[in-house]
Design a protein around this nucleic acid. Structure first.
Length: 737
RNA sequence: GUGCGAUUAGCUCAGUGGUAGAGCGCUUCGUUGACAUCGAAGAGGCCAUAAGUUCGAUCCUUAUAUCGCACACCA
């Protein structure tokens, strides 16, 4: 150990070890209270009238564990938070977790069945809820601790859970107001029914899986009709064809014909409707309104009968005659056999690929059913109340759909990258009424009461004989309120007035519809505000070959394991560099490793600078040489570029810029070229260069801080007081000049 | 079917109307003085194809091809 090394903290003498510092640093931040903007104001590091900067954390599923998607989200948002906090804004980042009602209940029911061989009906609502809450309490801690490991500067004082009292209140308030305004209605409509989970699911939660199922052509009187689902065909007594289809012009709309069908002769009625595409098959189809949304719409248009063929458990009803009571899975082949025998089958295409609707959360098959449910009417006109939405005035007649459109088209909300704006409009244009009731127990119970066919919507029981709707609300109903409910709405809180609308909503493009659109809907309607000014959509984190990470592929990179091996800073940087907004990003362990090296590089740069400036007091601003001035100018240019990139949400460019500056300019050029000056005899020149190096180090640490908070703070803690403006880097001032 | 995106170094990707960049990898050389988790030097690309606009196109326009994604349809 030489003389100079003895002047700097001993910890710099070994390579940087993240594990040694990260937890301690996070504890220090928490203890400082600076995650909470109120405390920042109290401590005088933020002005009371500073501009607010708010992000609500997309709440992770409470039963989940941290995966790379979360890690990337946390890194991105934390960079924005730390940058804006250092810029002096009132920075509030609100943490929370999501009950993920359907997914959670499904999971707990699964455990229950596996361990005790019991189904939910056997243990009852109360007991199941207890099991779920236990499970949730357990999991909650896990995800919160994992979130902290990433260095997230979340204000834990404001932690919110979708199922807690404040959020419950918001949900109830929203429901009642929408009901009173006629935007929520109860009606019998075609919905996606999951016979396994015994609940409805929303259109967005239905995913289609390709399966091979034979395509049957049946003789239906003089016509030939095709289907992959013979088991739904019992009640088909309408034949639909396009009005302009010349092949069938001899048939009149409303004309009745006798046809021989599965269980004997029936009377069929001809229906002419545009929905029948002459190009597909024979151009003729029969319809099953109860079990198909499209057919339901046709039936509605012409006022046709609708008959239920399949019950809620997936079994055939008496209309199926001899097949009644059979499960549809077994019934299909039996029916085909019978039709074959009756000579009703014209031909069968065996290798037909069909897409089967399944429930994304739980995986069961979806069977459309007509059911009495609660819906949000997206096309109902109402008069707008007080409005802070650009392009929407108080007193104007609007619909929820137009509000959602206007929020984006009139720039109240800006979406990054902008191509997703087109995707957003496209979705809204195709939007149907939103079925919000679910037949599961874990979730926000609907504040509606029934008695002898009467309905009352209110929080408490209207009295004797009224029973509450057993259904709960779609989880996205409460998620839609998230920016507001986390800030205390419907109470008129200080937080709500100060921090709403929020600044940025950062989330994956895959939930643009589920969540972003729903928040815009709720917020514009309920409070006449846009919920956020900017939407930043990140891509999916994939493996190094570009494949989706999944357990079955075994290609998961676990963020916690990576944090343990390479540190949170390296993990964060690997998730930000190269992650252009809206683009998927491949990630490999090598990439993370590379940024671990960078952390070490920074560590050694600091060691070099601190060693070489230890004898300087920095009481005077020195006279700078041309060379010194150039170094400072380059530093400022790098800072400006990083700032500009963060402002434009191009974090990936900002991160790359500062990485490149620190390694290949500061270390490779400035430090190398300074050695001569520092070892020379010109004391004035030496002092000037010491001053310059100090400036470079301090500014670099600041600019790197949002990206790599732990190592920069660790180094900052070792800086002498005369070179830093605040004791804690997290609240130091962003460099400006 | 409709829409969107991608196609640039061996790999993963940036980028710009004036004949190209990064990281990783590769080759050669270099360690007692911040760092081998390093430094220096280097190899490697008709920027998918075709036509057009232009003084000039990897970049703009239009087709084509391949890949990916979203939405819709699937009687």
């Amino acid at each position: 150990m030489n003389e100079k090394n003895s002047q700097i903290p001993a910890l710099f003498l070994s390579p940087y070890d993240p594990a040694e510092h990260e937890d301690k640093i996070y504890a220090m931040w928490e203890k400082s209270g600076y995650f909470n903007p109120d405390k920042c104001i109290e401590a005088g590091v933020t002005h009371a009238d500073a501009e607010p900067f708010t992000i609500v954390l997309p709440p992770p599923n409470v039963t989940g564990t941290l995966h790379m998607g979360h890690a990337s989200m946390l890194a991105t948002e934390d960079i924005l938070m730390r940058y804006n906090r250092m810029k002096g804004k009132k920075a509030l980042w609100i943490p929370g977790t999501d009950s993920a009602a359907l997914a959670t209940q499904s999971k707990v029911e699964g455990i229950l069945y596996k361990k005790e061989k019991k189904r939910r009906d056997e243990i009852g609502r109360e007991a199941l809820m207890e099991r779920i809450e236990e499970f949730v309490e357990d999991s909650k801690k896990t995800i919160i601790n994992q979130t902290k490991k990433m260095g997230s500067s979340l204000d834990w004082d404001r932690y919110a859970f979708t199922m807690d009292d404040t959020r419950y209140k918001a949900v109830t308030e929203a429901f009642i107001r929408m009901y009173n305004d006629g935007l929520i209605y109860r009606g019998a409509r075609s919905v996606n029914w999951d016979p396994a989970m015994q609940t409805t699911v929303s259109d967005d939660e239905v995913v289609y899986e390709e399966t091979n199922s034979p395509f049957y052509y049946f003789k239906y009187g003089p016509f030939t009709i095709g289907t992959v689902r013979p088991e739904t065909k019992f009640g088909d007594k309408y034949v639909v064809m396009h009005p302009d289809d010349d092949r069938y012009k001899e048939y009149e709309h409303g004309q009745q014909i006798e046809v021989e069908w599965i269980n004997g002769p029936i009377t069929a009625t001809i229906i002419k409707d545009d929905a029948a595409d002459p190009e597909i098959g024979t151009g003729v189809m029969t319809i099953t309104p109860w079990h198909s949304t499209i057919d339901f719409e046709i039936a509605e248009r012409h006022g046709l009968d609708k008959e239920q063929i399949i019950n809620e458990k997936g079994c055939l009803l008496p209309i199926a005659g001899e097949f009644a009571g059979m499960h549809i899975k077994k019934a299909r082949s039996a029916i085909v056999e019978k039709m074959q025998a009756k000579g009703l089958i014209e031909r069968i295409e065996e290798d037909n690929i069909n897409k089967v609707a399944t429930n994304e959360r739980g995986g069961g098959m979806i069977e459309p059913q007509i059911k009495e449910q609660w819906f949000i009417d997206v096309n109902k006109e109402f008069v707008m109340g007080p409005s802070a939405i650009p392009g929407v005035n108080e007193g104007e007649t609007v619909t929820l759909k137009t509000l959602m459109q206007k929020a984006v088209s009139d720039s109240g909300v800006t979406i990054y990258p902008d191509r997703f704006e087109r995707v957003y409009y496209n979705w809204i244009n195709n939007l149907h009424d939103w079925c919000i009731s679910r037949q599961i127990w874990y979730g926000h119970r609907i504040p509606a009461w029934f008695k002898d066919g009467a309905i009352k919507v209110q929080i408490d029981s209207p009295g004797e004989g009224w029973t509450q709707d057993p259904d709960t609300l779609d989880t996205w109903f409460s998620s839609g309120l998230w920016t507001m409910s986390t800030l205390g709405w419907p109470e008129n809180t200080d937080d709500f007035r100060t921090y709403h609308p929020t600044s940025v909503l950062e989330t994956g493009y895959d939930i643009l519809f589920f969540w972003v659109a729903r928040m815009i809907l709720m917020s514009t309607y309920l409070v006449g505000q846009i919920p956020f000014k900017n939407v930043y959509l990140h891509g999916l984190v994939r493996d190094e070959k570009g494949k989706k990470m999944s357990k079955s592929l075994g290609n998961i990179i676990d963020p916690l394991e990576m944090i343990g091996k390479y540190g949170a800073d390296a993990t964060r940087l690997s998730l930000v560099v190269g992650a252009a907004p809206g683009n998927d990003m491949p990630l490999s362990e090598d990439k993370i490793k590379a940024y671990k090296k960078f952390a070490n590089k920074l560590w050694n740069i600091s060691r070099f600078v601190l060693t070489n400036v230890a004898d300087a007091d920095f009481e005077q601003v020195p006279e700078l040489s041309t060379e010194d001035t150039k170094i400072i100018k380059n530093l400022h240019q790098a800072i400006d570029e990083v700032s500009a990139n963060i402002d434009k949400f191009n974090l990936y460019l900002g991160a790359e810029k500062i990485y490149h500056y620190v390694w290949h300019e500061l270390a490779d050029i400035v430090l190398e070229e300074s050695k001569e000056v520092l070892n020379g005899d010109d004391e004035k020149a030496k002092y000037a260069r010491q001053y310059v190096l100090k400036e470079c180090l301090v500014s670099s640490l600041k600019v790197l801080h949002p990206f790599m908070p732990f190592i920069t703070e660790t180094i900052w803690q070792e800086l002498p007081d005369n070179v830093r403006d605040r004791e804690i880097l997290m609240v130091a001032k962003w460099p400006s000049h």
